[in-house]
Every structure is written in structure tokens, then in C-alpha cells.
Amino acid sequence: MRSKLVNFTLIIFYTLLLGALYQVLLSWRDIDAQGEVAVLEIDKRLDAMFAELEGFRDVPDVCSSEFRLRAQRQVYTSLDLRSIVVGYPEGEFPNFCGGLGSYSQRLDSNFWHFAVKDDYVMGLLKVTAYRDDPSVAIGQYHGEAVTLGIVNPRIMLGRWLEPFQKTVSIRLYLDDRSHPILSRAAQAQPSRRHGFSHREITNDFSSEKYPYSVSVSMSYGIIAEHIIEFAQRLVKVIAVLILVALIAVIGLIQFGSAKREIYSK
């Protein structure tokens, strides 16, 4: 009897251990799936915006009202762009033209924090002369010229990062990974406070086409809650099995007693 009890305890222990390992593997799978989907969706958004910018490859000799009006119309019909600017980064001032007119600006570290991959560039603007919140710029070089699209970061956050699973945190980095240009914290937090809730498991995913990467994280507290929920379900199943076994044993005892009474008569 004692050996059976030990074996039963070991079965429960190993079931819990395998269940905990399975929950960790599920969490890693969720992180990998969210990261791959995030890069795919962000690449699609960037593809769409660069398609909008395709009509502004050529830099006008004069920043005419016709060009400014065309840029304004494109921004007005765009879901993501808040401004379009074209020009020569190293040209004579004024070297840029956009929907609001001519600009004199060097694309240096005082203007933005940026990263380049092939002909594509992305950066977080440091200049907030026209906006209270910093904008994100995307651009494509065409020889010495560049076409820039200024993107509302709130739109990026809502359309690019918000739709993903609520148990993960997502951060959007430039390729140098010095600091995130966008981040969305996990909306589902652990209901219990654990000593390791502030720690996370993280995996990074990079775009093959554009100069950014995505970091996806999940709190150890969330994983711990999944393991606890599994253990609670296991305890309930064991309790039901024990109850069924007790009912069966009681039934067998009663059946045996009734059978003996019949034979004794």
C-alpha cells in the first residue's frame, strides 16, 4: 500500500513538472508567433507607406504651390503619414520642400536618431518645432536625394503594436537598439505579485528589408500564473478521479454485502 502511495505521488509530481515545462514552451511559442507576426505586419505597413511616397521621388527645382498642394492632398488621404518632405540632405539651403513650404535642414544627429538599411532610413525626430510629440520619419534615398514621410507615432502604436496579444510587451527598435522608438506594455498583468514578476523572457526579431527590429517579452509572473492554473486543474481532475474511485469502491462493497446476504438466505 505504501509503495502504491509513493508511486501515485511520483506520478502527480512528474505530471506537474511536465505541465510546467509545457506551459513554458507554450509561452515561448506565443512569443515567437507574436514576433514573427509583428515584423510581417509592420513590413506591410511600411510597404504601403513607401508606395505612397513613390510619387514623390523627384525633387522639384522650385518648391512650387502645385507641389505643396500635391503633398498636402497625399497626406490628407493617408492613414499614417502626417507630412511629406523631399530634398537633398547635403544641398544648398533651402534644401527641402514639403507640404508646408521650403525647409533648411541637415539630417544629422541634432535632427533625428536614425538607422539605415540599403536605401531605406528610419528615425525618431528630435525636432518638435511643429509638434508637441516627437514624430517618426521613414525615408528612401534616390542617389543624393531623399524622400521622407513623417509618421504619427500614436498611429504607429495603435495600428502597428496594439492589436497583438495582451500578455506580451512589444518594443520597436531601430537597428542599433540604443532605445525603443515605440513600446507597448503588456495589458494583462499577473493578478498575484511574485518576486520575479518584473523579470521577463524576451526574444528579438529583425526585419530583413527595413532598419528596425522588434522585441517581444512576457513576464515570468504571467508564466507562473499559467503553471498555477494548470496545477489547479490537475488537482481538480485528481479530486474527481479520487471521488469516482471512492464511489466505485463503496458501490462494490455494498454490492458484495448484498450478494452475501442473498447467498446466506
Rank of each mutant, 00 (worst) to 15 (best):
4 K>E: 13
7 N>C: 07
9 T>H: 09
10 L>E: 09
14 Y>D: 00
15 T>M: 12
15 T>W: 00
21 L>F: 12
22 Y>W: 08
24 V>W: 13
26 L>F: 12
28 W>R: 12
29 R>P: 01
30 D>V: 13
31 I>R: 03
31 I>A: 06
33 A>H: 11
39 V>D: 02
41 E>G: 05
41 E>S: 14
43 D>W: 04
44 K>R: 14
45 R>Y: 15
46 L>E: 07
48 A>M: 12
49 M>N: 13
49 M>R: 07
52 E>M: 11
52 E>L: 09
55 G>V: 09
59 V>R: 03
61 D>E: 11
63 C>T: 05
64 S>T: 07
64 S>C: 01
72 Q>F: 05
73 R>S: 10
74 Q>G: 11
74 Q>F: 05
77 T>D: 14
79 L>N: 14
79 L>D: 14
81 L>T: 10
85 V>K: 00
91 G>E: 10
91 G>M: 11
91 G>C: 11
93 F>V: 06
104 S>H: 07
104 S>D: 11
105 Q>A: 08
106 R>H: 03
107 L>I: 13
107 L>F: 14
108 D>N: 12
108 D>A: 11
108 D>S: 02
108 D>W: 03
113 H>R: 02
115 A>Y: 09
117 K>G: 07
119 D>Y: 04
121 V>E: 06
125 L>H: 00
126 K>R: 11
127 V>F: 01
130 Y>L: 01
132 D>F: 01
132 D>E: 06
133 D>I: 11
134 P>L: 01
136 V>Y: 03
137 A>W: 01
137 A>H: 00
140 Q>A: 12
141 Y>I: 02
141 Y>N: 02
141 Y>S: 08
143 G>L: 08
145 A>W: 06
146 V>R: 10
148 L>V: 07
150 I>H: 02
151 V>Q: 10
151 V>F: 08
151 V>D: 07
158 G>S: 06
159 R>T: 08
161 L>E: 10
161 L>T: 05
163 P>A: 02
170 I>H: 09
173 Y>N: 04
173 Y>S: 04
174 L>D: 04
177 R>S: 11
181 I>Q: 03
182 L>V: 09
185 A>E: 15
188 A>D: 12
188 A>R: 13
188 A>T: 10
189 Q>S: 10
191 S>F: 07
192 R>C: 04
198 H>E: 08
200 E>G: 00
203 N>L: 12
204 D>Y: 03
204 D>S: 13
208 E>W: 08
208 E>H: 13
210 Y>T: 09
210 Y>R: 02
210 Y>C: 08
214 V>T: 04
214 V>F: 07
218 M>K: 14
219 S>F: 04
220 Y>G: 00
221 G>H: 12
222 I>G: 06
223 I>A: 01
225 E>L: 12
226 H>R: 15
228 I>T: 06
230 F>Q: 03
231 A>R: 01
233 R>M: 09
233 R>D: 08
234 L>A: 10
235 V>T: 09
237 V>S: 08
238 I>P: 00
238 I>G: 03
240 V>M: 10
245 A>Y: 15
250 I>L: 15
250 I>T: 13
251 G>N: 08
257 S>L: 15
258 A>D: 10
258 A>M: 05
259 K>E: 10
260 R>P: 08
